[in-house]
Amino acid sequence: MEARELAELILKEALRLGVDEVAVEAVSSTSRQVRFANNEITVVKTWDSLDLGVYLTKDRKVVGTFLSNVDPEAIKSALKDLMSLLAVMKERPDYAPLPEGPFTYEPISGLYDKELADLGEKAIDLVESAVNKALETGGKRVAGTFAFGEEKIILLTSKGVEASQDRTKAELVVRALADGESAGVGTTCGTRLKDLDPELAGEEAGRFAKLSLNPEPLEAGRYDVVFGRPASAVFFDIVAGMSSAFYVDAGMSCLMNKLGQKVASDIVSIYDDARLEAGLGSRPFDDEGLPTARKPIIEAGVLKTYLQLHNGQEAQHDLDG
């Protein structure tokens, strides 16, 4: 059975078993990875997979999971097991019904690139050019990963949502070592082949590996610090994570009770943009089928939003202020 048929099977079977709501996301993907170390390719991998995300609710109780055993009988048996788990769950205080569809989705450009999907053995050339550049610019040993692939997402819900999206993506990480401990990292990523610059990633890794040779001790104290792109991206990712309602509700977020308050300097704005052209994480619809949007997390230093898990939570938090 193909992805769409299996998604329909789950929808039908779950409703027959008595759930109130179902959402099924079938993700068919072919992903590839070229790994390298000591300036050599160590392994080339291909994953072909069909994974079925299932979300069920009954009496305001919720279960959800991904199934990778796509045998129809195994799916039916898994749904029965999920029903027995659903029975011992309790009502979710943050339960919100699935949104009533159907919806219209504005397309986002640049999410699928046939050239990248058909890259095949040319991936070896890209890795070779990154490794050579890292060696030229100061690396003695170069390691890393080039991962790329394509996927098709089909989303069906019992509330009338039917959506699909094709995507491609690629990420190259290069780590160059100038000796045992002096290392530099360079990366390049995107949804299109033309967005990738393996030589630049290699050059960055080699250059920083060389720069980090013979480090000198630094006195503890106050300094001006410049964060490079990889370091600042991690930092912004952590801050964005702290704005998720999950961490806020659990009392584990430094942004708790800070909505509308100044949490950063005036020049800091952080957005979660699901509609960015050619964005690695861009999608026209979310896992419940709602059309996506660009959301400000921090704008001009002020905390604007907590990122919500479910559509209904938004209202609850708005009421909470």
Partner: peptide, 13 residues
Amino acid sequence: GVPEMAGFERSRG
């Protein structure tokens, strides 16, 4: 004290 669905794996390949 609240039951949560944290994992349920069925995979074959």
